[in-house]
Design a protein around this nucleic acid. Structure first.
Length: 258
DNA sequence: ATTGTGGCCTGCCCGC
DNA sequence: TGCGGGCAGGCCACAA
C-alpha cells in the first residue's frame, strides 16, 4: 500500500530517533536486502553510527547516518514501527493481525528504534541507494516537469503517472483518485493531453495529496468506497468501469473522465 | 527507447 | 470446515 502519503508518515515518525546511536541491527532476512550486500556487512556498516536525519523521495524512506544512508522501500505491505509505535496501524489491504515472523529488518537505537514489518516481502533495505533514476517527487512537481514527462508518451497517462522515473511517489490508489478528480480517462496516451489538461492534472495531484493526506492516507480517496463491483461515480452516479491499465486494477468514470 | 507482460512473495477472501 | 482460485496499494527483468 505504502504510497507517498504513507511513507511521509513513516518519515515523520522516524524523526523521533534522530540523534541516537545505532546499537544493533537485525537483518535476519537476507533476501530483503538489495544492492548485493550481505547481512553481516550491512550490520557492520550501521552499528555505531549516529542517526542524523530522515528524508523521503517518492516512496523511498532515507535514514541518514554518520555512515551510510539507509534506504527503505515498503512494497505493498511494509509498515514501519518506531519506538513501538506505528504511524499507520494497519494498511487498508494488508493483514489486520500481527505476526512476529513478519519482521524483516530492525534497528536498535537508544532506548527504542525502528522495525520494518512486511508480510509479503516486496519491500527492501539498501545502503546508499541510487535514486538518480527517480523523477521529481509528486508533492512538488513543477508544471514544466509534468509537461515534459508526458510529452510524446504513447503509454496510458495512468501508466505514466505510476512510472517512478516520471514522477516519484504515486501508486495505484492515488493515481485513480487524481485522474478522477482531474476528469482525465486513464487510457488517454500521455502525449495527447493538451496544456490545459496537464495544468488541471497537476492541480489535481496537489489537491489529492493535500486532501487525502489530511484524511489519513491514500486509501481515503473519494473513489475508494466505490472501488468494488457495482460501484458508481461519487460525482455523477455513473457506473464505474474496472479495467487493467498499466498492469494495475483501475476504477474510473467513463462519463466525466475523458 | 518505450511499452507491455510475467513474476516475485504471502495472506486473505470468496465460492464450492 | 477445507480447499482452490483469484485477488492485492510495488517494482524489476525481460521481450517485442
Amino acid at each position: 500500500m505504502p504510497e507517498l502519503l504513507e511513507v511521509e508518515a513513516y518519515r515523520s515518525a522516524v524523526d523521533a530517533v534522530v540523534g541516537r546511536l545505532i546499537r544493533s541491527v537485525v537483518a535476519s532476512d537476507a533476501a530483503y536486502l538489495r544492492g548485493g550486500i550481505d547481512p553481516g556487512r550491512l550490520v557492520d556498516a550501521l552499528v555505531g553510527q549516529r542517526i542524523e536525519a530522515a528524508s523521503r523521495l517518492g516512496k523511498v524512506l532515507l535514514v541518514h547516518t554518520t555512515g551510510p544512508v539507509l534506504g527503505l522501500r515498503f512494497g505493498m505491505t511494509g509498515v514501519v514501527e518506531v519506538d513501538g509505535f506505528r504511524p499507520i496501524d494497519a494498511l487498508a489491504y494488508g493483514p489486520r493481525r500481527d505476526d512476529p515472523a513478519w519482521e524483516r529488518f530492525a534497528v536498535v537505537a537508544g532506548a527504542g528504534g525502528l522495525r520494518v514489518v512486511d508480510p509479503r516481502r516486496f519491500g527492501s533495505v539498501e545502503l546508499d541507494p541510487d535514486l538518480t533514476a527517480l523523477g521529481p517527487d509528486a508533492s512538488c512537481v513543477r508544471p514544466a516537469q509534468l509537461t515534459s514527462a508526458l510529452a510524446d508518451r504513447r503509454a496510458p497517462v495512468k501508466a505514466c503517472l505510476l512510472d517512478q522515473h516520471v514522477v516519484a511517489g504515486l501508486g495505484n490508489l492515488l493515481v485513480d483518485d487524481i485522474l478522477w478528480r482531474a476528469g482525465v480517462a486513464p487510457w488517454r496516451p500521455g502525449g495527447t493531453l493538451d496544456a490545459d489538461e496537464v495544468a488541471v492534472l497537476r492541480r489535481s495531484i496537489r489537491t489529492s495529496l493535500r486532501v487525502l493526506g489530511r484524511r489519513g492516507g491514500s486509501h481515503t480517496g473519494d473513489l475508494q468506497p466505490a472501488r468494488r463491483a457495482g460501484g458508481s461515480c461519487p460525482r455523477d452516479g455513473e457506473p464505474l468501469r474496472r479495467d487493467t491499465v498499466g498492469g494495475r486494477t483501475t476504477w474510473w468514470c467513463p462519463r466525466h473522465q475523458r
